[in-house]
Design a protein around this nucleic acid. Sequence first.
DNA 1: CGTGTTTTTGAGCCGTGTCAACGATAGTGG
DNA 2: CCACTATCGTTGACACGGCTCAAAAACACG
Lengths: 244, 244
Amino acid sequence: MPLNDILIQKFETNAHISGEDRALIAQLPVFPKSVRAHEDIARQGTEPDHSVFVIEGVLARYQEFAGGDRQTVSLHLKGEMPDLHSLYVRRMDHTLGAVTPAQIALVRHEDLKEAFAKSRTLGEIFWRETLLDAAIFRQWIANNGKRGALAGTAHLLCELYVRAKVVGLLNADGTWTVPLTQQQLADALGLSIVHLNRTLRNLRQSSTVVLDHTRRMQVVDWNRLVKTAGFDPTYLHLVNEHKI
Amino acid sequence: MPLNDILIQKFETNAHISGEDRALIAQLPVFPKSVRAHEDIARQGTEPDHSVFVIEGVLARYQEFAGGDRQTVSLHLKGEMPDLHSLYVRRMDHTLGAVTPAQIALVRHEDLKEAFAKSRTLGEIFWRETLLDAAIFRQWIANNGKRGALAGTAHLLCELYVRAKVVGLLNADGTWTVPLTQQQLADALGLSIVHLNRTLRNLRQSSTVVLDHTRRMQVVDWNRLVKTAGFDPTYLHLVNEHKI
DNA sequence: CGTGTTTTTGAGCCGTGTCAACGATAGTGG
DNA sequence: CCACTATCGTTGACACGGCTCAAAAACACG
């Protein structure tokens, strides 16, 4: 599959795209690159002249605190563009890095803007992507806030499972091989790794969802999981054929 | 002051705007409206055909949970546009409401898009606004997450103080009359009102910042406040003349 | 086989939530 | 002007969720 099709495939989970816009995306010059696990791609304070999208692996945006604590603010799977914002907000106010070994593709801001000049609707599609990104942030505020550890963890699992599903990352049996350590999940939820582990045990023992050292996430009872999480997928704004 | 100038004033804290774009904003048809405290402006699930900006008062976006708990995901002061995203993401995935009596102005999506068609840079300015909105979300994730109650509260106060300052909302003596109840602050921080109250007492007793029943926020020691919060204003992306 | 990483568990502590009451303040109507 | 009410802020006592420290178990990899 040509690299740019990955981007198109992802965008089409959220919007219908005209043939013309698909062609423009397909023609976008992209530069593939491998990154190692834990390698930073764009550091806080820098001013990148390009954005990236994920071909394979997982990227995260995070802030670091004194003492080495991390707050992960987003996770990005295949087809997503984690730093589109750098197009119009020059200076990075957080760091983008790989949490697993990953394949990414670089797209120059210049080329993106040129494509937007050719098609207004294309610009709108990319704008919309950044808005959907923000919708996820809003949920994560709640995950880290009023929803306690159990609901927050369940919510994150719901979300990632659906996001993995719509870009075809599930295994044949409907399980998902979670490419994240429990530490990485804990960093996203503002929990200690110990408490996350116990929370996963709760979910396992209540026959809701199984996630353990095998990293195979198996949804035992989707309805119960959704209820535990208070998960309402509206905020993912999936087009009909990708609804859950 | 003409209503649209409020928008221009706010935008200019974040970017330099050409005369042409200023003129386009000035010509935007806007419809003023009063809203009562606690009145909802755009409810979750609806599909508005307009956005709003704040003339006076405070708006909030929030989600409601079973049991009446609320998670506030953003607060909006004079000049801000809390629901620009509805331009390209039709369905509201949260509710926008007034937390104080407020004056707002309605702007039709149609008119905005028409203006964007006349000037590409104008569209970019609005896009950028939504990106800055998202930058604040990222900080709030940390406020509700890894930063504990003390740092989170201090961080929110830093942020709101600066945001109030750049649009000229401070009192002559440099204090800020916080237009929010402690419950509303607690909802934004994912804290109980009791604990927020105690946290404010801590900040008061450590001579960092005074905020009590008078609702007058007085920064006693800005450096100490910034340090307590771990506040780095980069994420507000203020242009030079508005730096703190 | 040995080393490093990740997961899991236990024990105990501390931060934050809950419940309840009181105090302050502002607004309202008699 | 006062009494009444509603809302908000403040404090205390206590419970509990989540954190820290520490160590063992499971696993991945050279």
